[in-house]
């Protein structure tokens, strides 16, 4: 199975179940909307917490959506077929991660600046927010996929996945929210964006290998 074909197949399959694309997005927006209600509608307060709020909400949305990464394949038996085939799992894993991010991560990235505006984040920071989310959310998907590969088929999936993956998300959260705060205060952002890009490259190259190993472990092979 070629790389492009896998991505295409994933995208096609997802088009038949649009809820799986839209639900994480709704979740993202709803979590962010809870904060002004829970904290305060004051602009000066919201603009300070906006980067962190948006990033934490994005993190949770990715975490919740990535849980279903292998569910359909696991239930239909396609995953088992992939595992018994004498092929390397690296590229299929990368394709799954990429397709999943295109479907669930990219919409979050596009909505991010809008939510930033609603939280009174300075407009000058919204391009940085967009870039940071663009670099950070694929990292989140890739790291989440490792956790999913280890918990696929387990009954206690959701909460367990969060326990495994949330500590691993810390660097992305720190640098992602940090760079947006920098931009809001007019500080230079290139160095921090470079760190986010480095994290993205590292996770995209290493995570598929870990996902492949994880899937083999979970299948008892």
């Amino acid at each position: 199975m070629s790389f492009v074909a896998t991505v295409k197949r994933e995208l096609l399959l997802a088009c038949r179940r649009p809820a799986e694309i839209i639900n994480p997005l709704f979740f993202f927006v709803m979590v962010v909307a809870m904060f002004p209600l829970g904290v305060s509608p004051k602009a000066e307060l919201l603009s300070v917490i906006a980067p962190g709020v948006i990033w934490v909400a994005a993190l949770l949305a990715v975490l919740l959506s990535v849980e279903g990464l292998f569910r359909a394949d696991h239930e239909s038996g396609a995953l088992e077929q992939l595992l018994v085939a004498p092929t390397n799992l690296y590229l299929p894993a990368l394709a799954k991660i990429l397709a999943h991010w295109l479907l669930t991560g990219l919409p979050l990235v596009l909505v991010g600046p809008l939510l930033g505006y609603m939280l009174h984040l300075p407009v000058s920071a919204s391009s940085t927010l967009l870039l940071a989310l663009l670099l950070g959310t694929p990292t989140l998907t890739a790291i989440g996929a490792i956790g999913v590969s280890l918990t696929v088929g387990l009954r206690s999936g959701g909460i367990l996945l969060a326990l495994l993956v949330l500590p691993l998300y810390v660097p992305v959260l720190v640098f992602g929210a940090g760079v947006v705060s920098y931009a809001a205060n007019g500080l230079p952002v290139m160095g921090l964006l470079a760190i986010l890009a480095a994290l993205l490259l590292a996770s995209l190259t290493l995570a598929p290998a870990a996902v492949a190993a994880g899937l083999r472990i979970s299948s008892g092979g």
């Binding site: 280890l150 691993l168 870990a210 994880g214 472990i217 979970s218």
Partner: peptide
């Protein structure tokens, strides 16, 4: 056995991560 191997993979991923976490927390 499966639990042990899964924990092995998670520990390896975690150790790589711990270095970055340490660095990011200092920067934070």
């Amino acid at each position: 056995r499966q639990a042990g191997r899964a924990a092995s993979l998670l520990s390896v991923v975690g150790v790589i991560n711990v270095v970055i976490v340490k660095y990011s927390v200092q920067w934070w």
